[in-house]
Amino acid sequence: MSIEVKGVSKRFGDFVALDDVNVSLPTGQLTALLGPSGGGKSTLLRIIAGLDSADTGTVTIAGTEATHLPPQKRNVGFVFQHYAVFKHMTVAKNVAFGLEIRKRPKAEIAAKVDELLRLVHLSQFAHRLPSQLSGGQRQRMALARALAVEPTVLLLDEPFGALDAKVRKELREWLRRLHDEVHVTTVFVTHDQEEAMEVADEIVVINEGRVEQVGTPDELYDEPANDFVMGFLGDTTVLNGVRLRPHDVHLSRAPELAGAAEGVISRLLRVGFEVRATVLTDDGEEVHVVLTRTHARQLELREGDRVWVTPASGAASVPPMVATAG
């Protein structure tokens, strides 16, 4: 295990940021810390980096007990949401900073900077100041700066949070490919479930200072441990007292299966390739159903039609209203 977090708690005044958190992050993987804003995930990342200190608990990085090490001794790379560039240094100088601190030979530094700038596609900007770069370019520079010191672990705190949607999507794919090449143990914080699902090998869901679930994107999506995880990773609806995903609801024009709930389509909305239907059942439940456009056409659905809905076979579901406490 590359990073071991044991029994970590942290308070800011009355606010409990982390409450007895235990996580093991394996070597070489890309892990996402996912959760709503203020849930404690950034605090956990900063504690791993040594930028904040835990009130209780221990942090071990690559077998070294690091709980009381200052950040400069942990050999971690940290990338900040707002880039944290050194404004008065050129792009090349920014990247070289960590190596200069380590007093590496000049030629080695130059070669390493060169290589990294090529890696992040900023070679032609080496002698510019950060103020002349776009947000996405600045963040790539920050990433190169963090990678330059060959960190044991790379930590990214909402790295794409300050970028606009298109750049964010590009950089997120790029980060995945970069990780496949560099293979450094990477942890990144995000509140965007789509980003976590798309990029990460493993996801740690954190809410209100506690770990809700740890697993691969598939595991989390298909077998959510509780209501919160289910709800955070995608849309949900309630049918026969069970919470499930709207596309896991089977809708038919005739009572095909036993136990199907009967109802009326109260609203029908087409968005691109999918059709969203709201069914008002005779039991008074409002069930949301998502169908493909093709399927909806076959059924010739209209608002006001009488339909039957059942959970599709193999649907991921959790009973609703269970306590979200882990």
Partner: peptide
């Protein structure tokens, strides 16, 4: 969150 930094 993380409004105060211990390393600044």
């Amino acid at each position: 969150m993380a409004s105060t930094s211990s390393t600044a």
